[in-house]
Write a protein that binds this DNA or RNA. Structure first.
Lengths: 329, 329
DNA sequence: CTGAAAGCGCTTACAG
DNA sequence: CTGAAAGCGCTTACAG
């Protein structure tokens, strides 16, 4: 900055003002300073600027896992919004309790970002309590955490929609497929979809006992593993509600591998709106992840601009394709 | 830091030394300072620290797109390595020429990160030239750019392996499927796999004319669109080599939708090692993306630690599953 | 509109 | 082993 000031024949204060959009510099001076800065490929040091101004220009997105489709879709939707607001995106993957606890204990985001965007991140009670120490705005995407501002679908409604679709088709034995890699931590979407499955069945006078709830550890084949257990039941289900489309894909592949026709012998519905679901013809409850990500990022931008926040509820929509049908018998 | 110093009865210099692992502090003093810092939930300001030390503790990962599986897998593999080295991960999505150019022109990474990790990012010649102005280490993952340190598979070999597999099965009319959203920019993996397709066919005395090379704009249904065009040819192919597994999935779904049996009527092979390929039984050339991401991150860490660099070549392996077979006739 | 100067919160020779 | 002080590169009241 000193170099630019010297060449422009002004003080560094003027350079600073000219380069950002603050008023108090004549247009000719501003233009001259900018030209010189461009020539020198000069760019303001974000560290020094942040140190002076007291904020970082960064937002931290925290996810439990990066390789699942959901998180890529979320990040992909958030990125353009943050970029447009000149905010950099710091991504933290905190897989498992140990890392999550370490992340929250060391409060790294506290001084590294102006806002923290928790994205479908299961949290224990202790961890939720620690969130107040973040020293940054906290926003939640894809679910809810306490009363932090959030963007989410109504997962109770989404779950009910899925299960009712199966009941409407005539199914009376409906299982649920989920993963349980949350080691004591809890995520609202998981709790609510499971709850929706249970109550919708019970309200219809049907069995929703634990043997019909297949909880597997996370993995590409989690859906296959879960379905295998369900099919081994004395009275196997004729329909399955999967927590995610990826679980549904895996379950459907397993069903076909063991000789079951989908949807004739087994109906499967997922949740997400995974693009491959369109390719593969999978019935799902679309939770419009791209919208959620975009809106959550917009919420953060608004918050940092000093605006007020309002939670956003994104509607979930049933998309019937080729993996659900009336039971054969 | 001043608070901690006061409570510990030492200078801020000592607090600074005690809190990082620099020598020059007695163990009792160090322990006392750390205890007090923990009580106060104090954490060193990264901005101030970075400003003093001259580096940021961040690495910027630049990708063209976040929602494709490949990038999530890459980021997911890089994250733990960077985290272990106490480096934060800044993610930049630069979709299309305009944003890429803006990114490179504004050189934002220049002061925002100690290293830039270009991940399968198509670049124009001008853009490649600008890379020298980055003011940070540049490392390339999933391909090569000039002579920057990189981690990649041998894409010529990978492409040859795929096409030869089809030829070995007896196919004589083999098409290729790729996307062309690179507006004048070029990515080595794309160039080399296409080149491999062409030369392998020609070396075998077969047709590799442009009508057999289907280039579609990026999208979930790109594979379907490309295959539709290929099937409309006077003499359609009996086998298709897809640039990625996602293209292969889409093509296979389209083939089945129009009544073709895969692999009986049409063989399809992709590249990647996408986990759903295992679920769906898709033949592929696995390029071990997780390994590439991990190794690229390790390369960055080594570079920042002042070590020397050596390019890494990850072997690509043919995984034969259920979507390739000898041609029917 | 412009500049001199204090201050943001650290790190690190230098001296003891 | 410990501290006083300069310096990292900006921003922003304050004064003119």
């Amino acid at each position: 900055m000193a170099d630019v000031a010297r060449l422009a024949g002004v003080s560094i204060a003027t350079v600073s003002r000219a380069l950002r959009d603050v008023p108090g510099v004549s247009q000719p001076t501003r233009d001259r300073v900018r030209d010189i800065a461009r020539e020198l490929s000069y760019v303001i040091s974000p560290e020094a600027s942040a140190l002076s101004r007291g904020h970082t220009g960064r937002v931290a997105v925290v996810v439990p896992r990066l390789e699942a489709w959901f998180y890529g879709a979320m990040l992909g939707a958030m990125a353009p919004v943050l970029r447009a607001a000149d905010l950099d995106m710091l991504v933290y993957e905190t897989e498992g309790e140990q890392e999550r606890t370490r992340f929250l204990r060391e409060l790294p985001a506290r001084r590294k970002a102006d806002a923290v965007l928790l994205t479908a991140l299961p949290l224990s009670q202790t961890e939720v309590a620690r969130l107040d120490l973040m020293g940054a705005h906290v926003v939640v995407a894809g679910g809810t955490v306490r009363d932090f501002p959030h963007v989410a679908v109504d997962d109770l409604a989404a779950g009910r929609t899925a299960v009712r679709h199966l009941l409407d088709l005539g199914h009376r034995r409906v299982a649920m497929l989920r993963t349980n890699d949350t080691d004591g931590a809890v995520w609202s979407a998981d709790v609510q979809r499971t709850e929706a499955w249970r109550t919708t069945l019970r309200d219809a006078g049907l069995d929703a006992s634990d043997e019909l709830l297949a909880s597997e550890s996370y993995g590409v084949d989690a859906g296959a593993r879960g379905l295998a257990r369900l099919l081994a039941l004395p009275e196997p289900p004729t329909a399955v509600f999967a927590y995610s489309d990826e679980l549904a894909f895996s379950a459907i592949a397993h069903a076909r591998r063991v000789g079951l026709r989908v949807p004739e012998d087994l109906s499967v519905i997922g949740v997400d709106g995974h693009p491959l679901g369109e390719t593969l013809g999978t019935t799902t409850v679309d939770q419009h992840v791209t919208d959620q990500g975009r809106l959550a990022a917009e919420l953060v931008v608004g918050l940092l601009a000093g605006g007020t926040v309002a939670d956003v509820e994104v509607p979930a929509t049933l998309v019937v394709r080729d993996t659900t049908a009336p039971p054969a018998h």
